[in-house]
Each structure stands twice: as C-alpha cells, then as structure tokens.
Design a protein around this nucleic acid. Structure first.
Lengths: 205, 205
DNA sequence: GTCTATATTGGGATAGAC
DNA sequence: GTCTATCCCAATATAGAC
C-alpha cells in the first residue's frame, strides 16, 4: 500500500466534483429532468467526457447515490457509541435534513422508473444501502429496548419513516414560506418526526 | 337550470375517465416520465384527440390535479361538523393515504419543474388549493384550541406536514415489504404522523 | 371529434480527431 | 482524456382527411 499518486488524487477530486453536481441536480430537478449536458456544463466538461467515465446517465446517477450512502455511513460512524441510541438516530437524521436543505439529498426515484430498476441490480448500491439500514435497525432496536422509542410501532416502520423524512417536502415548504431559518426548519421536522402532531405531556415524570 | 343533456353527461364521463388515467400515471411514474401517448392508449383514444381537448401536456396534468383537489374538497365537505376537529383531520388524511395506496395520489412536482411553474399561474388550481388549505387550517386551529393538537408547533408546520404525508414514500415501502395489509399501512402512517416515533404514556389521565 | 401521418426538438449516446 | 460533430430515438405537438 503506497501513498496515492498525484494522478489518483486528481481523479478522486474530479469524481467528487462531478458526483456532487449530479447530486445537486438530482435533488433540484429529479432524475428525469436532469440532463447530462447540464452536469457537464456545471463541472466545466462536455458530455462525451462524462460518458467516457460513466457509461450512461443511469450509471452517473447510481455513482452519485452511492457517494451519498458513503457520506451517510461516515456520519453514522462519527456518532459516539456512548450516546443514547435515540440521540444517534436523531443526529443522523439531522445531518440528512441539513443535506436536504442544501439541495444535496436527491429525492427517491418514483415507484416505477428505469433508474429504480437499475439500482436494484447494482450490487454496490445495495450493499451500501444494506450497511446503512443494518446499523440504523440496530440502533432502533436499542432505542426500543431502553424505552426511548415506541414499541407499539414495528421497527420496519421506524426505519422507513426515517428514510422518508430525509426527502420530506415539508422542508421545502417551510423554507419557501420564509418564516423560519434553516436551523428552525430542521428542528421543526425533527419534532414532527419523533413527537408527532399531538400534544405531549410535560417531560420529566 | 335545465337537466344536463346526454351529450354533456357523456363529456363529463369521458373527461373523468381521462383525468383518472392521468392521475394514475402521474402517481406511478411522475410528470416527466408520463407520456401523452400512454394516457391516450389507456383511455382508448389517440394522442391528437387528447390534444383537441387539452391544449398541452401541462394542461392535462393541471386538469387532473384540479380534479383531485375537487375530490379532496368533497371529502372535506363530507366530514360531520359535530366530530372533533382532530378526527376530521385524521379522516381526510386517511382518505388521502388510501388514494395514495390506490395509485391515485400524484407526487408533488419537484422543486423546479415546468409543471410547477405553470401551476403557479393557474388561477383555478390556486383557488382550489386555497380552499383546501383554508378549511384545514381552520380545523388545525380548532384542534389546537381544544388541546388535541400540540400548540408547540406552528399551524403552518402542521398543514404542510399533512400535505407531505399524502405523498409519503413510507406507504410504498411498507406496501412493497409485504408484511402489512393496506389498511394496516394506513393506520401505521397515521400513527407516525400524529403520535411520532417516541413512546407515549398510556392514554386516559 | 377522431383518426393517419408528419413536423420538430430535446437529449441520450457515440465516432473520431487531437 | 477532452473536444467537435453527429446519430438517433422518443415524445410533444400539429396538419389535414374523414
């Protein structure tokens, strides 16, 4: 294992810039409306150059989504194991919501789309997704065991709910409304997610 | 006001079949992936015939969304005023979730899209949307006043949260998972919306 | 008011020069 | 490894016959 060469570092940097642009366009416009020309222009390349590196538009999107899953795994790994599991879950969701507000969280593909089909055949994507889901599921089980998450809801429902909140349109609605700062928007959505809309009795006991 | 003629009734029926098909395709594939040819084929017409009735793909989608808002208004009107406001809100959301599971609830247009721009210029659409939002906002205020909804969250957040739940991908996730019936899926999402993921003390007092 | 046939364009993908 | 130029198809939209 020698140190990465300059060329390798340059390639990694270039790929990161490309995939960040793809991520942003996926978040802002969705897969169908995003064009490869836009991506190329945004990173200062031309379309054929992109196609040399990524064989297709689908491959480009898949690479961007895998990068996002890797960032998610890094955020997960950064959580202190001494923290209560509910706080770890909240921190990761908070990070995801912040990404969303920065237009860095692509919306999930629609029920039936060519992209979804190709992702389901992408073993790298599936493996990373499984890694995220596995850890979060463990944390959910821990939080249910220590009483900080409801045991009335199946953990499957909780996991999917956390995923769904990361692409919650409420974030855009509140941001567009202009009555709240980004930080307030994140806090409000976290509250709706964990506490719901019904009132809760005062904390303590 | 004479009774509607046969021809008028036929036209209304035809329009309803067309817009129901549009609605389903919007829900399943989204606006960009939906083609006018698909719509025409599904209702047994050809593309030019559709274009005679609706001048453009955008107009077709707008008509379908207005129809959905009208159905929503009908559902709202069907709620008994003697019911507590929280129950009225829950009933309307339940109806919307059922529509979603039947592929009759189009996903909201992405942040920036041609469809969104045209909808914001469509006065009929905006008027209907305002009618729905106005009534729901009143109910939210009533529910906050009678203590059945939290006063910690701005009512704006509650309204947007209800809208967002109608296109919540959790529904598809749970339906695809196969562990729950459609009715159970609806109930679970209603619980996550109103009660959140954290445990609640036993009811009563 | 529905059809067949066609115009037109946007955008994914590629050939081939440098 | 990046470019210019091009292919090609899918899909919106329309012309015009019946």
């Amino acid at each position: 294992m020698t140190a990465p060469s300059l060329k390798e570092q340059q390639q990694r940097l270039r790929d990161d810039v490309i995939l960040a642009a793809v991520n942003e366009l996926l978040a802002r416009k969705g897969y169908d409306a995003m064009t490869v020309d836009e991506v190329a222009t945004q990173v200062g390349l031309t379309k054929p150059s992109l196609y040399k590196h990524y064989g297709s538009k689908e491959a480009l999107a898949a690479a961007a989504l895998i990068r996002l899953l890797d960032q998610t795994l890094a955020t997960i790994a950064a959580q202190s194991p001494t923290q209560p599991p509910i706080d770890r879950l909240r921190s990761v969701l908070r990070w995801a919501l912040e990404q969303h507000l920065r237009s860095a969280m692509p919306l999930l593909p629609a029920t039936r789309s060519a992209l979804r089909e190709s992702l389901l055949k992408n073993s790298v994507y599936l493996e990373r997704l499984q890694a995220v889901s596995g850890t979060l599921s463990n944390w959910i089980a821990e939080a249910q065991a220590d009483g900080s998450l409801s045991t009335a809801l199946p953990s499957e429902v909780m996991l999917y709910t956390l995923y769904a909140r990361t692409c919650d349109p409420v974030l855009e609605f509140l941001q567009a409304g202009g009555n709240f700062s980004d930080a307030e928007v994140v806090d409000l959505v976290l509250i709706t997610c964990f506490d719901g809309l019904r009132p809760r009795p005062a904390v303590g006991r």
